Amino acid sequence: MMLRLLLILAVTSLIQAAPNERFVEETSPSNVYRVVEGPLTWNDAKAKCEAMDCKLAQPKSVQANDALKALLVKGYYWLGITDLNHEGRFTYYTDDQDIVYDNWNAGVPNNGNGTEHCANVILHSTFNYSTWFTSNCSEVNEGGICECRTSGASGDPHMRTFDGRAYTFQGICWYTLFKDCTDKSRFDVTIMFEPREDSTPDQVRTRTIAFNVTVGNQYAIVNGLDVTTGSTGGKMTDAKVITIQQEDKNIKLHFTSKNTTFSFNWTLRLHALDVSYNGSFYKGKLCGLMGNADGDTRNDFQNPDRSIAKDVLEFGESWKVNDKKCF
């Protein structure tokens, strides 16, 4: 406990208070980490994460744990790891599976007289801290780290912008998912929704069935698991910029523009398209259903004329591609 106290004092004295929300992506583009500020008990942090359709973070690799440092917060934050179900055996709280990676501090876990059942991480980017400890679940920490799905469309469809704003939009046909909204647009990504079989006239529920990526004069159309690539001019004039990998009912696609790589993970079984990017050039320079990627969720619902939509329906329909035929 003395070591923990010394670490808290060092962190508290050498870094300023952090904003309430920050995001960082893992090296593998499967999750986004989000901070919820406290003070919070473990159950408080768990509830806050789940209210955002996320879960308490469960870093499963060195890269994932290192990514937490980029959150630029100080002190102790709860993780989604406990031994509440098995004394001395720490598991992920969502599925009770044994943890596959850990970064425990020396001598931890040590049972804490049988009272320390929840894991937390001490974070300090300057001093390279992302070390795990255990605490009584009822103790108050600075906050929690939430693990959220990457941006994109999933389900019927549930959407999440690049800045992490979740919403539901039941559009039909083609829409602009996101595009380069600089003066010289370099790429455009559209997505197609169709009504689900269980839709009714009174309640339309849609799903994602296809998406189209155009970069320069090259394009890729993914319709279910059918992939079509080509050139808008009929002749490929540039080096191949869109890379596609297919395995079973999953397609991975990525392209790079202005030193920024956009990655797509399409899972037909779930009709889910997860999208992430790595790079800073397009911060605040994107537009479409996934917002502008400027780090502020409050201005995500921008129409094509940059005005803020009054509701989700206005925002979604403003990005409909009217000159593109449905399948």
Results as ranks from 00 to 15, higher is better:
67 A>Q: 09
120 N>A: 11
102 D>E: 01
102 D>M: 00
79 L>P: 07
126 T>P: 05
120 N>I: 08
72 L>W: 07
122 I>M: 11
61 S>Y: 02
127 F>W: 11
94 T>E: 10
69 K>A: 13
112 G>V: 08
97 Q>V: 07
74 K>V: 06
94 T>L: 15
125 S>E: 06
75 G>C: 04
79 L>K: 01
89 R>N: 10
105 N>K: 08
114 G>N: 09
81 I>A: 05
125 S>A: 10
106 A>L: 13
113 N>I: 14
79 L>Y: 03
101 Y>L: 05
57 A>M: 12
75 G>N: 06
110 N>Y: 11
122 I>T: 08
92 Y>F: 12
127 F>P: 07
73 V>R: 04
54 C>H: 04
104 W>V: 00
123 L>S: 12
96 D>H: 12
70 A>T: 09
88 G>H: 08
126 T>Y: 02
76 Y>S: 11
105 N>C: 07
106 A>E: 11
114 G>P: 13
72 L>Y: 12
60 K>S: 13
61 S>P: 02
122 I>Q: 06
83 D>E: 08
57 A>P: 09
84 L>W: 15
64 A>C: 13
97 Q>F: 09
116 E>S: 04
76 Y>H: 12
104 W>E: 00
119 A>N: 03
87 E>T: 14
108 V>E: 00
100 V>P: 01
128 N>H: 13
126 T>I: 07
114 G>I: 12
112 G>L: 08
124 H>K: 01
73 V>C: 07
60 K>V: 04
123 L>F: 12
93 Y>D: 05
102 D>S: 00
68 L>M: 05
103 N>I: 04
108 V>R: 00
78 W>G: 01
